[in-house]
């Protein structure tokens, strides 16, 4: 190229080697990151596919509604399934009100101060405590100190404290999404803080709060370590088909612990039974999560502000 002549418009927009390298890096990175991200879909599909494939021969209504038989080598999952429902419901009764109120406090009452920071830090740390340490806490506090013994109640309380941060986090998100102008308008009409919360803030964020509660259900249903020593047992026979077969001051079976037991502790389990248990567990948890996702998407489409 002759350097004496001024650069023509065509030359200005033609690609230099540097430009080409930039463009190449750009597209290589884009494709690379796309692959990296897409790789994460594979384990999800692989796990569900593998479990379903292995579990198809045993899956039936009878599997769900009959008790384990022959020292848990065969039979269904009724007792553990019902036990998990009990644990989830009781823990929800405890953690939902406390979690929602805690989030209301953090978002609506607390001012910016060192105390609020410590509270927020405590929520983060509570979420980070290992599940097995929650189990030790449950043994020390509920089973022994409070005298509840190994029972559904003790296990549920342990689960409730463990899942509290889930509810607090998502309720805080939901409350934050309510515009400040809504509150200000309400205060200007002479309403008190609590009236504003009850009539304006909570009705406008109820779907978000529900999402948090639903996620708590999914989390509590899958946990194993915290209930192992606080209330779940390897085996307990209950009446089939009776929804009130457990007493909350007694022990129960649980789906997650049952999966652990029959896949590691019991020899010669019927082929497919552990896979069937696993798919029921994963299926219930994913179904609950899917409900939360649908609820969230629905909420976003009808949001008025």
């Amino acid at each position: 190229m002759n350097t004496d002549t001024p650069v023509s418009p065509q030359d200005m927009f033609t690609e230099t080697p540097i430009d080409r390298r930039k463009r190449l890096t750009e597209s290589v990175m884009r494709v690379f990151l796309l692959i990296v991200t897409s790789v994460m879909i594979i384990p999800l599909l692989l796990i569900i596919g593998y479990l379903l494939y292995k579990a198809i021969p045993v899956l039936s209504f009878e599997f769900l509604f009959s008790n384990p038989r022959d020292n848990m080598r065969a039979g269904g999952i009724w007792a553990p399934f019902l036990g998990t429902i009990y644990l989830v419901v009781v823990s929800l009764l405890v953690s939902a009100p406390i979690g929602v109120f805690a989030a209301v406090y953090l978002n609506e009452y607390a001012r910016e101060s060192w105390f609020t920071r410590v509270t927020n830090l405590a929520v983060v740390n509570l979420a980070g405590v290992p599940s097995i340490v929650h189990a030790l806490f449950g043994v020390g506090a509920f089973v022994l100190f409070a005298g509840l013994g190994e029972s559904i109640l003790a296990a549920s309380l342990t689960l409730a404290i463990m899942t509290l941060p889930v509810i607090i986090a998502s309720t805080t998100e939901a409350l934050k999404a309510v515009p400040m102008s809504f509150r200000e308008a309400c205060w200007n009409l002479g309403a008190t803080r609590w009236q504003t919360i009850r009539r304006i803030v909570i009705p406008n964020s109820i779907s978000g709060i529900l999402t948090g509660v639903i996620l708590q259900v999914s989390r509590a249903a899958g946990e194993t370590a915290p209930i192992m020593f606080t209330g779940a047992v390897f085996y307990k026979a209950i009446a089939e088909g009776n929804l009130f077969a457990y007493n909350i001051i007694e022990q129960c079976m649980a789906l997650s612990l049952h999966l652990f037991t029959i896949s590691t502790q019991v020899p010669d389990v019927t082929e497919g039974t552990p896979h069937g248990t696993a798919i029921v567990l994963v299926g219930s948890v994913l179904l609950v999560n899917a409900t939360a996702i649908v609820l969230r998407v629905y909420l976003r489409t009808r949001k008025k502000w």
């Binding site: 999800l44 899958g222 652990f260 552990p274 696993a278």
Partner: peptide, 16 residues
Amino acid sequence: VIELLAAIPSVVWGFI
């Protein structure tokens, strides 16, 4: 997808 991946219980990962 990421949310569903996070929801799979740890005992199921152990089983896998």
